[in-house]
Nucleic acid binder design. Structure first.
Lengths: 340, 340
DNA sequence: TTGTATGCGTTATCAA
DNA sequence: TTGATAACGCATACAA
């Protein structure tokens, strides 16, 4: 175990100067800097993170608290999520820690403990709900975190997100532009911030086109195939007007919609037009669907890097504006929409 | 941020005495102990782990290095694994860290970095192969770890395992006791320690019964349904003698065997007897199989607790014998074996 | 039973 | 450009 002291003795320098040289401070002569770096390599020096943390007050660890066991259908995605963040943070020389909370109730306690013992410098928060208690807690206690998503208009913390209002809007507008007037919207469960924002975009597009918002066309459920299947069947088997087009907020839901439409004897795009947002999840590939689905695309896997980057740089003192970003999405036309 | 110093001033005691009182040392008067604990609670004291770690030389963190992204079929299991260890270690007041290594090549580098920077106190190692390089590295560098499995006869480190030799033996013996003499064995991929040990048990049972070992009956493949399917089909479609009974080393393989047997027109247990080891994996339940399968059972989920326990106690100075255990398994008779 | 002094390895402050 | 010194918060050997 080589320490700064070993190097300093080896070179006849002070510990201070060795520390400065290794940290590439300005006020070190080029020659000393070189000698120290060489000696460090030769003696196989590795800084004792614990000591460094004590004096800087930082642990070098960032974490994610998982409030419950991910369901089987989420687990593949969750693995990618962990791998992405882990790799992202390790590029910044930080350790990424996963904490599984036993029950959903004591999640805030987990944060409190990690924060109180100075074990963790900052957190990654995902899938925020409206008025998310985690965000309230962390902000109140001045604990750094990065949010995947958006919950307020002028966030005073790092975040990374796509423009979910625009996603909802673009999907709906595309159908409107193709002459559709009866457009259903199959969304995630109420409460999530992005579910809310996509809904806002949907209604905005309807409003602008002078189309009425109909409760019967606004459907909710978990982000699963089942939801797409169930809600589609319900719409087409109930009384009242039927949509000519459907917006699905993700590909799983879209997949379920295909199954349902086939069951009720309708086809895409002849009978029904369909658009969907594609996160490029590892489990549902759009080319596996019966008809290639048009819609917005934004690879969720491309969030992990920026999330790690934003939190790391914020911890290093970067200004807020450099660690807040709304990523663009694209719209890809495929074969699932027909003009009426 | 309350420190020991705050409490000491608050109570007019020395920092030393406060520290001792909080750590429940012997040489503290009952009254002081009480006063200190009350003050600590009142002032909401939480120890600064970083400082504690610097002086003890321990980080309080244990970790697991995942050398690659788990495959989709492993991910549910992996989640349970993580959750189990996370909960287990948190009961011991430790943080459990997951590290994903980018490529399989630099796995040892990851260990080296974590060890060198004193970031991690100890590791959990699973699925050891013969002469596992991780184990060699950690032993050489005196880094504590707990092994899920066994690789040597007199391990000088903590471990937890089931008796895989006995599993292979018991499964085979059960078939022998029912009169079978042509017994196939569908095992995992060579290299893994437990694959080897189950094979040893299989051959030992054959030997004891005076039955010949036949290469054609000794089959290998990944621990997947596909392996069971493929190897069964191969056995029954090739020339030469056919088995009257099959041992499957896990339920996934057993499931594949059922599919294959059905395809070649054979049924369990009338034409073929089948036994299997059941880890009680979350994805393949034995009651979902066409016929309830007899065999050994040992819930792998019951390993996470002991693993965390063994490593924690070892780090706390427990003697080796207290942190090494081979758990018993049970044999459950169901309906998949017929006497010949 | 309690307190004093020391040190863990690093970084920051200040003086030289 | 360099070095001596203090400090981070805690635990422990030793003294009282």
């Amino acid at each position: 175990m080589t320490t700064l002291r070993d190097i300093s003795r080896h070179l006849g320098l002070s510990v201070t100067q060795v520390s400065r040289a290794l940290n590439n401070h300005e006020d070190v002569s080029e020659e000393t800097r070189k000698r120290v770096h060489e000696a460090a390599k030769e003696l196989n020096y590795q800084p004792n993170m614990i000591a460094r943390r004590l004096v800087t007050g930082r642990s070098g660890i960032v974490g994610f608290v998982q409030p419950r066991m991910p369901g089987p259908e989420e687990s593949v995605f969750f693995m990618h999520f962990l791998a992405g963040l882990s790799a992202g943070f390790s590029q910044h020389g930080r350790q990424f820690v996963l904490h599984m909370a036993d029950t959903e109730d004591d999640t805030l306690d987990v944060y409190a403990r990690l924060v109180g013992t100075r074990s963790i410098d900052g957190f990654v928060i995902t899938e925020p709900v409206m008025d998310d208690p985690r965000i309230a807690y962390l902000r109140k206690n001045d604990v750094p975190f990065v949010l995947h998503g958006q919950t307020m208009d002028q966030p005073d913390f790092p975040f990374f997100d796509i423009d979910n209002v625009a996603v909802g809007y673009d999907l709906t507008k595309h159908l409107i532009d193709h002459g559709h007037r009866d457009i259903a919207f199959i969304n995630g469960i109420e409460g999530s911030s992005y579910v809310h924002r996509r809904e806002v975009g949907y209604r905005r597009a309807l409003d602008e086109a002078g189309l009425p918002y109909r409760k019967a066309f606004d459907r909710r459920g978990p982000m699963s195939e089942n939801t797409g299947l169930l809600e589609t069947v319900r719409m087409f088997q109930s009384e009242g007007p039927k949509p000519t087009a459907i917006v699905a907020v993700n590909m799983r839901i879209a997949k379920g919609i295909f199954t349902a439409l086939e069951a009720v004897g309708l086809s895409v795009p002849n009978d029904i037009s369909l658009v969907a947002h594609d996160d490029l999840l590892p489990d549902v590939m759009p080319h596996k669907l019966p008809v290639a689905v048009s819609g917005t695309t934004s690879p969720i896997a491309e969030s992990w890097g920026p999330l790690a980057d934003h939190l790391s740089r914020f911890l290093d003192g970067a200004p807020l504006k450099d660690v807040q970003k709304i990523a663009p999405h694209t719209f890809i036309k495929r074969g699932s929409v027909r003009s009426t």
